[in-house]
């Protein structure tokens, strides 16, 4: 009787000890990652939010006085902010659909069996491994109005010369072209993987059922790809709203702000004009808008997934 109680007590004691040790080792493993995340992710975000509601003192380089929504009011009043937002929206509206359509289209075409297909697939990766700033510089040379390759080729067919970086519309086109050159391969790779994963016997069934090339594409391939297309769109959207490096290297926002995407504008305001508080307010606005839109896109793509 006594023995039994003793063993039970020691058992519960050792169970507690074991549980404690387990908890301790779990946290010991998690703490470095948690600290790192807090330091490099959470702290900057919250500090940015704090700055956006404060007066920023350059002498001490810190937020000194709580000013409420004042910085936000300034920003929303600034026509350059709205110009920059417009530029960003134009870029997104053209670049994203273009990259998705081109990517899936090319993937569909190179998915057919032909010699050298794998070499071409490998070549497609090159734009993605080129540093964005290098890509921007490279394309600056290719599109150079005087001695660039593109104008030379256009000249051969009697077009141009086009002033790629001097004309606002063309400069935006150049930015979209460079970004598309850089990111379409990513879409192609995703789309190729999706195409290869489609069930083969479904297409054989369609063939026997009398579907021709077009109705196989329209009635089978596309509906089956819809969830992947939506997911790729969300991934590309998240990449595209961060657009900064290519614009910095290729056009530097010019001419006259025609390609001054919002991130470039924020960067300029903060580190050139040293208006940190307003920049922080803009960054917070962009963060919130991006989060809301991303949530909408994710929800939309989930709805599409359920439908198909």
């Amino acid at each position: 009787m006594v023995d039994e109680r003793l063993t039970r007590a020691s058992a519960s004691h050792s169970r507690f000890a074991r549980k404690f040790a387990d908890l301790l080792s779990r946290w010991a493993f998690m703490v470095p990652a948690a600290v790192l995340l807090l330091a490099v992710l959470a702290y900057p975000i919250f500090y940015t939010i704090e700055i956006s509601f404060s007066r920023f003192d350059l002498a001490t380089f810190s937020a000194v006085e709580w000013v409420g929504w004042e910085n936000y009011a300034h920003v929303l009043d600034d026509y350059r902010f709205w110009e920059s937002m417009k530029v960003t929206v134009v870029y997104l509206v053209f670049a994203l659909p273009l990259q998705i359509v081109l990517g899936f289209g090319i993937a569909f075409l190179i998915n057919a069996e032909w010699r050298g297909r794998n070499v071409v697939r490998a070549l497609f990766i090159i734009p993605m491994v080129v540093a964005p700033v290098v890509a921007g510089g490279l394309w600056r040379m290719i599109l150079d109005p005087l001695w660039g390759m593109v104008n030379y080729v256009l000249g051969l067919v009697g077009l141009g010369p086009l002033d790629w970086f001097g004309d606002p519309t063309l400069a935006m086109a150049a930015l979209i072209i460079i970004d598309t050159w850089r990111w379409t391969p990513f879409v192609i790779l995703t789309a190729t993987a999706a195409l290869l994963a489609l069930p083969r016997d479904v297409f054989e069934a369609a063939e026997i059922d009398g579907a021709n090339w077009w109705s196989k594409l329209w009635s089978i391939t596309l509906p089956l790809l819809v969830p992947i297309i939506a997911a790729t769109f969300v991934v590309r959207w998240l990449g595209a709203v961060k657009m900064f490096d290519i614009a910095l290297a290729a056009t530097y926002g010019g001419p006259g702000g025609a390609t001054n995407v919002i991130n470039l504008f924020i960067y300029e305001e903060a580190f050139r004009s040293l208006r940190f508080a307003e920049s922080a307010a803009m960054a917070v606005i962009i963060l919130v808008v991006t989060m809301v839109l991303t949530a909408l896109f994710l929800r939309g793509s989930r709805l599409l997934e359920e439908r198909y």
């Binding site: 479904v202 369609a206 026997i208 059922d209 009398g210 509906p223």
Partner: peptide, 17 residues
């Protein structure tokens, strides 16, 4: 499609959408 045959597959091969 011009052979006028119908086939039932092992994994059914139904159109999932």
């Amino acid at each position: 499609r011009d052979r006028d045959i119908a086939m039932v597959f092992q994994n059914y091969a139904l159109y999932p959408h």
